[in-house]
Design a protein around this nucleic acid. Structure first.
Length: 469
RNA sequence: GGCUGCGUAGCAAAAUGGUUAUGCAGCGGCCUGCAAAGCCGUAUAUACCGGUUCGAUUCCGGUCGCAGCCUCCA
């Protein structure tokens, strides 16, 4: 039985989909004005894993993740680079998809764009005005009237009085209340715009998600996810908009992932302490990043550091080492390990425990190297369970030799070590030296290679293999 | 200031009202020409102070420290 921590109730709850066997999930995606950083990667990987596990559990899932392709920062960046905003967003959407593919993130079923959802957005705003949840301000912008919505604050645990007391932004005189937020923003000269009953303008950020999620999944759906920072105001506003417009409950389970931190501080664009996915891929293979992300629980903070990435690579190496030389033909899986794995994942997607099950399995696998039947079952189980996490699917030899079979833009920056050294020749030289019991020469070759990041291992049958150190 | 959440061994990271987490690193051993990998064994922990309890790291209260939100942000 799957349990999900619901931000709305601040507790783990049994997951009961609206319609038996079917799940609708919406996740707030990226605003595409720059490259994705590791924090964005976490959202993509976490909810990809949630999606994979829901499907593994037999649910028919519709996974929607939007793209915000119009907003102030996009306009600003496009002006800076002197290109059309659509050209800018197209570039970064493509870059985002490259990052996704690298990280083995499966594409969502639907990826709506704000600019392609204008009609739905306009329609929802009109409804909100009709129902008196929204009004046209003195500057022509359309605002949501927060105090008209009784449940405002129910997700973030804030209340309107506290918010007003803590108000510290300049009061926008066009609004009736400082807490009101914009639904439709009038275009300034030279800005992109769409026609609407209130004039030429563009949608506010919050209304996009309400319109796109409702459009793709209906008025009321199962899971809505996103980063912790979106809890307030973004998700709070979504609830106010959607429930205000439809009069129905909006979302049953709210899931929020924790931040990636750098030196105990949130990784973010504004702090400037971020590492883009493509930067990190120059140093670490994509699967290492994915493993690093999944090695802590999705709601915990995740501290980014080279030491952590190194540790992830070492841990992953242990799993691959267990599979080295094992031909996996068997499709039978060990039900005990499978059950333990599923129990971990059923407990609010506890990937650290799920991974620990993989290590326990690996230990038994290593002990079963002499028992071909058992070995087959365990290896097949390891690979199948790991696939649910999106890891351990590389070719074993390629991974251990420091490469990756994932095709993508980073291939050029991840050369295999053998490109620069003739490892096979050196191994042959060493084998010859060993035959002559010339241990000095043999050991020197091994030490030299180790210095260059290549570890040699002699198997009992006399065959020497190598891997990246 | 208001509201969330967190503080676990050398590092990372789970869990739990009483029983080995797991990975890396350490120590001892087996294996090996020597290694590496693997296996076996082993050490180190629950911020601090109170309370509830037969028993608390786990529940409650307080103290200290940290992070996040209250402004665009995954």
């Amino acid at each position: 039985m799957l349990k999900i921590y619901n931000t709305l109730t601040r507790s783990k709850q049994e997951f009961i989909p609206k319609q038996p066997g079917k799940v609708g999930m919406y996740v707030c995606g990226m605003t595409v004005y720059d490259y994705c950083h590791i924090g964005h990667a976490r959202v993509m990987v976490v909810f990809d894993t949630v999606a994979r596990y829901l499907r593994h559990s037999g649910y028919q899932l519709t996974y929607v993740r939007n793209i915000t392709d119009i907003d102030d920062k996009i306009i600003q960046r496009a002006n800076e680079s002197g290109e059309a905003f659509t050209a800018l967003t197209e570039r970064f959407i493509e870059a985002m998809h490259e990052d996704e593919r690298a990280l083995s993130v499966l594409p969502p079923d639907i990826e709506p764009k704000a600019t392609q959802s204008i009609a739905d957005i306009v329609s929802m705003i009109s409804t909100l005005i009709e129902r008196e949840f929204a009004y046209v301000g003195s500057n022509g912008d359309v605002f949501y009237a927060v105090n008209r919505f009784d449940g405002y604050g129910k997700l973030s645990g804030k209340n309107i009085d506290d918010l007003q007391a803590g108000e510290r932004v300049d009061v926008d005189t066009a609004k009736r209340d400082p807490l009101d937020f914009v639904l439709w923003k009038m275009a300034k000269p030279g800005e992109p715009y769409w026609d609407s009953p209130w004039g030429q303008g563009r949608p506010g950020w919050h209304i996009e998600c309400s319109a796109m999620s409702t459009c793709c999944l209906g008025n009321h759906f199962d899971i809505h996810g996103g980063g912790m920072d979106l809890q307030f105001p973004h998700h709070e506003n979504e609830i106010a908009q959607s429930e205000g417009a439809t009069g129905e409950p909006f979302v049953n389970y709210w899931m929020h992932n924790g931040f990636v931190r750098v030196n105990e501080e949130k990784m973010s664009k504004s702090l400037g302490n971020f590492f883009t996915v493509r930067e990190v891929l120059k140093q670490y293979r994509p699967e290492v990043i994915r493993f690093f992300i999944l090695s802590s629980h999705y709601r915990s903070p995740l501290n980014y550091s080279d030491e952590q990435l190194d540790a992830a690579e070492t841990a992953l190496t242990r799993l691959y080492m267990a599979l080295r030389g094992v031909e996996i033909a068997e499709t039978l899986v060990d039900l005990v390990y499978k059950q333990r794995f599923e129990e971990a994942m059923d407990d609010d997607f506890n990937t650290p425990i799920a991974i620990s099950v993989l290590f326990d399995l690996t230990k038994e696998l290593n002990k079963s190297k002499g028992n071909a039947d058992r070995l087959q079952v365990l290896a097949a189980t390891l690979k199948e369970l790991a696939a649910i996490l999106g890891i351990l699917q590389e070719d074993v030899e390629v991974f251990l030799k420091g490469g990756t079979t994932v095709v993508g833009y980073f291939e050029a920056v991840m050369p295999m070590p053998q490109l620069s050294i003739n490892i096979e020749q050196l191994i042959q030289d060493r084998t010859n030296a060993k035959k002559n019991k010339d241990w000095t020469t043999a050991d020197k070759i091994r030490d030299d290679l180790k210095q260059r990041g290549v570890i040699l291992e002699d198997a009992p049958n006399g065959v020497t293999t190598w891997r990246k150190g």
